[in-house]
Computed example of a mutant assay.
Amino acid sequence: MPEFMLLLYAPEVEGAQERERWAALPVWEEITESLRKSGTLVANGPLHPSSSATTVRVRGDETVLTDGPFATTKEMLAGFYLLDCADLDEALRHAARLPTARYGSVEVRPLRRSAP
């Protein structure tokens, strides 16, 4: 079966909005466990804030390191799910279940296993 990467994007928040998101933890745990039990979940995980990122670029013989994400955006990459699904439609159904889809976005991409 093909694998799909679900990339979770959300605005960085603090205070009450951050506590509201953490309050949804039982929903996350329920969804994750259901994906695990069905054999769909390959891997998943949250990411630290984008301020902890280091971006690496190699130009010619020079390696350039930049603190922070590649681009300044309103939404950060907050986490991911790697799913083994029958098809794109199944991956999209799972993406819509994730709480991030309600306040951010979930990008769904098939994994490429070989060169084009």
Rank of each mutant, 00 (worst) to 15 (best):
T66D: 07
P110Y: 04
A23N: 07
A91N: 11
P116T: 03
R59T: 11
P116E: 13
R112D: 09
I31R: 09
S105D: 00
A101Y: 02
L83I: 14
P46F: 01
V13R: 03
T32L: 04
F70T: 03
L77R: 04
R19D: 14
T40M: 08
W22D: 01
G104R: 06
G104C: 06
L92G: 01
I31H: 13
V56Y: 09
V56G: 04
T55N: 11
S114Q: 15
L88F: 08
P11I: 03
C85P: 04
P69M: 06
T32C: 08
R109K: 11
E18A: 14
D87A: 12
E14L: 03
A71I: 08
E3Q: 15
P116V: 12
L6H: 07
E20N: 05
L111G: 09
L98S: 02
H48G: 00
F70Y: 15
Y103N: 03
E30W: 01
S51T: 13
V56F: 12
V64F: 03
P46N: 06
W28Q: 08
P46K: 01
T63M: 15
L47D: 00
T54Q: 13
A71Q: 12
V106M: 05
V42S: 12
A95I: 02
Y81S: 00
Y103L: 01
R113N: 07
S114L: 08
P46M: 02
E14G: 10
R97W: 04
A16E: 15
R113G: 14
R113V: 05
A91S: 10
R36P: 02
R112N: 07
Y103Q: 02
L92W: 01
Y81D: 04
